[in-house]
């Protein structure tokens, strides 16, 4: 690579906009009058490297390269102005994106400074700075949807489908599973989601049952509690639960 680019150089940048801002600053370019041909050429060297290194952001760099080439092409085309109509510079959109990104990038510096100055102060709520911290005492009353989704993802990942050779078409509906859960809740004050899972023979049933729980949660037919992220979900009767 002719500019002696290294992996480090590229990873320094948060994305194509960040790289463009760097190139503009380095070459002392006027952001309102970016020499598109020059910057496209420099940019492409980096993109080549991103592809070679198979960085996960490579796609974003390629997309920007395409945008730059499109702008370059449009600037080469003669444009016929109709009447007094003002012709928009093909670079305008890119310039606006760069300026907007720059504002937030600057704010990020301030955020990093605030983080640094708060860093040495500790208080007794560790969730924000140590997500692995385990807390066995708390029962979260208001489980957020996000927590439930995470738990579901986690449980289903560990769910092994028993080996069967049946080819019968399984048919399970949401209504059926809502009925099934209501029945169980008539008899039991609490159900364990992990416990339910163990009873099912296919992933499909698990998914439909999970959807049934979400549906019932929405209608306040059930309440869901969880003592910890990834812990079992405890299902109990909600305010709209219908006793038969």
């Amino acid at each position: 690579m002719k500019n002696q680019l290294h992996r480090i150089d590229l990873e320094m940048f948060e994305g194509p906009l960040d790289l463009l801002l760097f190139l503009i600053k380095r070459d002392e370019l006027n952001i309102y009058d970016i020499p598109i041909a020059q910057i496209t050429k420099n940019f492409l060297d980096y993109v080549q490297l991103a592809k070679e290194l198979q960085l996960h952001t490579a796609g974003d760099f390629v997309l920007m390269a395409a945008t730059l080439m499109k702008i370059k092409a449009r600037m080469l085309l003669p444009i016929e102005a109709e009447g007094d109509e003002e012709i928009e510079d093909p670079r305008t959109e890119l310039i606006n994106m760069l300026l907007e990104y720059k504002r937030y990038k600057e704010a990020t510096t301030a955020f990093a400074a605030m983080e640094r100055s708060e860093r040495p102060h500790y208080y007794n709520i560790p969730a924000a700075w140590s997500p692995q911290q385990e807390d066995h005492t708390a029962i979260l009353e208001d489980v957020k949807l996000y927590d439930i989704m995470l738990t579901f993802q986690y449980l289903i990942k560990n769910y092994e489908e028993p080996l069967t050779h049946s080819v019968a078409v399984e048919e399970v509906t949401l209504t059926e599973q809502v009925g099934f859960l209501s029945g169980l809740l008539q008899a039991n004050a609490r159900l364990s989601f992990a416990g339910l899972l163990a009873k099912f023979e296919s992933r499909l049933v698990v998914v439909v049952t999970f959807l049934a729980i979400l549906e019932m949660l929405r209608n306040r037919q059930v309440k869901v509690k969880q003592s910890n992220l990834f812990d079992d979900l405890l299902i109990s009767r909600g305010s709209n639960f219908e006793n038969e």
Partner: peptide
């Protein structure tokens, strides 16, 4: 209530990941 900055070196010892985890540039943005 928060602890004073000068005790950070000691408090770090309480945590497995050497204190608070810093946010990445991407997360800060």
């Amino acid at each position: 209530i928060v602890t004073r900055a000068e005790f950070e070196p000691y408090i770090k010892g309480l945590f497995s990941k050497s204190g608070k985890l810093r946010l990445s540039q991407a997360a800060l943005e």
